[in-house]
């Protein structure tokens, strides 16, 4: 079997002396949606930050499309095809929606108008507000701008850190629909989610992390069906 598109293997590391990640492995195939779930403090966001290079690893390796990128900075990883949507502070509030997308495309030297049109097509609600300041939008629309900004570099892997935190259930469903649409275009998705049940429903592969290590790894449906997982992590 060929190596998966993203393969982050056996990651160990943390911010201070104590490790938060204790041998965590995440892989995503092309066009797949991978979801990381787990209890609070399991190191979900930390694992994703490690993949993106915002955390120096003590051990382990991160490879994208077969290339070792373990030593690259986040900015360099963006150029390699990673897109990252932080959980908070993920837009430029006093800039218009359109300017937010332009900033997303900052590293691109070519014409990015097509990409922008595609983003507007994907998120028609924010397309209507392209001249408005992003800070004045509703929570769900802001998240759409944030995702749109990350899509402007035409990433091959899009990483989302709790994209549905603090939005209403309806908005959440819509956001998940959009994420599926993005995945259909061939972009791999790696996502950390607090709303584990809904997220696993759309996941091709799910990772249950506990104390910085993989506890369960399976397809989303299989995890949802696993009584052990249901009992301990999904509340019955």
């Amino acid at each position: 079997m060929a190596e998966p598109y993203l393969s982050a293997t056996d990651m160990r590391g943390g911010y201070g002396k104590a490790d938060i990640l204790n041998g965590c492995t995440l892989t995503v195939e092309r066009g797949q949606i991978a979801v990381i779930v787990g209890p609070n403090g399991a190191g979900k966001s930390t694992a994703m930050k490690a993949v993106f290079g915002m955390l120096a690893l003590r051990e382990g390796k991160v490879a994208l499309a077969g290339e070792d990128i373990t030593r690259l900075t986040p900015q360099e990883r963006v150029r390699k095809g990673m897109g990252f949507v932080p959980q908070t502070h993920n837009i430029f509030p006093t800039m218009t929606v359109e300017e937010n997308l332009e900033m997303g495309a900052f590293i691109r030297e070519d014409d990015y108008r097509d990409t922008m049109a595609q983003v507007y097509e994907l998120f028609p609600a924010v397309a209507d507000k392209r001249r408005q300041n992003a800070g004045e939008l509703s929570g769900g629309q802001r998240q759409q701008v944030a995702v749109g900004r990350a899509l402007m570099t035409r990433p091959s892997l899009l990483m989302l850190d709790e994209p549905t935190a603090g939005v209403s259930p309806i908005v959440m469903d819509e956001l998940f629909d959009r994420i599926i649409e993005v995945a259909r275009t061939g972009i791999s998705i790696l996502m950390v989610e607090q709303n584990a049940r809904q997220a696993l429903e759309i996941a091709d592969i799910g990772y249950v992390l506990v104390q910085g290590a993989n506890r369960y790894t399976d397809s989303g449906q299989a995890l949802l069906a696993d009584p052990e997982v249901r009992r301990t992590f999904l509340g019955g």
């Binding site: 986040p74 900015q75 990252f84 837009i91 430029f92 006093t94 800039m95 900033m103 900052f106 900004r149």
Partner: peptide, 22 residues
């Protein structure tokens, strides 16, 4: 201008500006 917008972006959200390659 692109540079001017990059300045505003940096002022708005430093970390995100870094992520965007500014």
């Amino acid at each position: 201008s692109r540079a001017g917008k990059a300045m505003r972006a940096y002022s708005d959200n430093e970390d995100l500006a870094l992520l965007s390659g500014i």
